[in-house]
Design a protein around this nucleic acid. Structure first.
Lengths: 205, 205
DNA sequence: AAAAACATACCAACCAAATGGTATGTGTCT
DNA sequence: AGACACATACCATTTGGTTGGTATGTTTTT
């Protein structure tokens, strides 16, 4: 028994990734230093740069992992088995509200951090974040288009998609500013109520 | 004629502040370097530290100025003369939507940047940003309480206040991520439509 | 199965550049 | 003359990143 060399290496890499994720969520990408990561992972700089060629590549890895986590979480979610588009939508929102009870998720969104900090200084990382936002939006738009067709309501799928992302991202920020995670639940719940109300109203001008 | 020494000094200080504001909006507080500010302001480091004791104090000044600008803009806004609470609310939202046509405002929100980056690393600056968020919220809550009383609707002033701030802050982020400022207008407009609809519906369950 | 060859994962020490900040000088206005 | 508004030159520390080495594992050869 015992850990093989490859296993130990993978564990080190995982610890680096974990430390980086935590540090970025707390202080941002720029303020995240390689030294701090090494300290967290119990490793020296030589070891760090053995696993990641440079800080930017670590950033890519963190961003990728973050988004993969989001997608795998959603893939297993119960709403995927919904019978109707409307139930799918309701399930999606409920799942989001429930997911964001987790303190880990309440820490913030990687896409938001990379976007704000690096939009004008690191094109590579910014574009990755931006593309994830884009695919998130696409997913939402498709979901809402089905709902629209199904209910015959006249909601605008793109507007409501952007509106959702805005709400969630803004709520994560406010939660930090007010040190009150409840904002997330409340804002998402309000969004859900309103959207469902709008989605089930046919031609109610 | 000619600029007096005091005038020149004030101009220098203003340029520092201007450069800092611009750099923070573009790259964040941590990535904003004193050297970069000096270059922007056409000044050397000696000059910079003559005007501001350290980087943190400059941060305070930027944050203060940013919020003062917001407040003075709103103070002169037409909605202040509205006849009824409902018109006041509608005017407030219209003014916001109109204000955020300005590319300068579309660059981002100082409060958001300071909150995200400094929540766990600089208590002083974070608390200032946090307190501004707080007073913003209070203002909104008061406005909505009057609307609620006036219309007899059953909207929750605190929820809708947080929801508004979430929407706006999130929209500013998305605008950057998608490089599409239109998101701001669309999300705010959607919020306005919904809120006004909700505010004018009495006991519509 | 033992030995030799090689690859991996890491460490210790170092480096140049950039960082925020300081000490001291100098011309200008009051 | 003295306060003011800078410039010059400097400093300690931190930054991301490199270099050469070494212990340990893994693979290949005999």
């Amino acid at each position: 028994m015992g850990t093989s060399k490859a296993e130990a290496a993978a564990a080190s890499k995982a610890r680096i990734l974990e430390g980086a994720q935590s540090l970025i969520l707390k202080r941002g990408y720029t303020a995240m230093t390689v030294d701090a990561i090494c300290q967290y992972a119990g490793i020296t700089k030589g070891g760090f740069f053995h696993h990641f060629a440079n800080k930017e590549i670590l950033g890519e890895a963190v961003l990728t992992q973050f988004w993969e986590d989001v997608e795998s979480r959603n893939a297993k979610a119960p709403y995927k088995n919904a019978a109707t588009p409307l139930e799918y939508l309701e399930g999606y929102l409920d799942f989001a509200i429930q997911s964001y009870q987790d303190p880990a998720l309440r820490q913030g969104c990687m896409l938001a951090i990379f976007t704000m900090e690096l939009a004008e200084s690191n094109e590579t990382l910014f574009k990755i974040a931006s593309s994830h936002f884009s695919s998130w939006r696409t997913e939402l738009v498709e979901m809402l288009e089905k709902v629209k067709e199904y209910t015959g309501s006249q909601l605008d799928p793109t507007h409501w998609s952007d509106f959702y992302i805005s709400t969630l991202e803004g709520a994560l920020l406010l939660a930090k500013a007010n040190d009150d995670p409840g904002v997330i639940t409340r804002s998402l719940t309000l969004y859900k109520t309103i959207l469902l109300n709008c989605a089930t109203q046919v031609k109610a001008k």
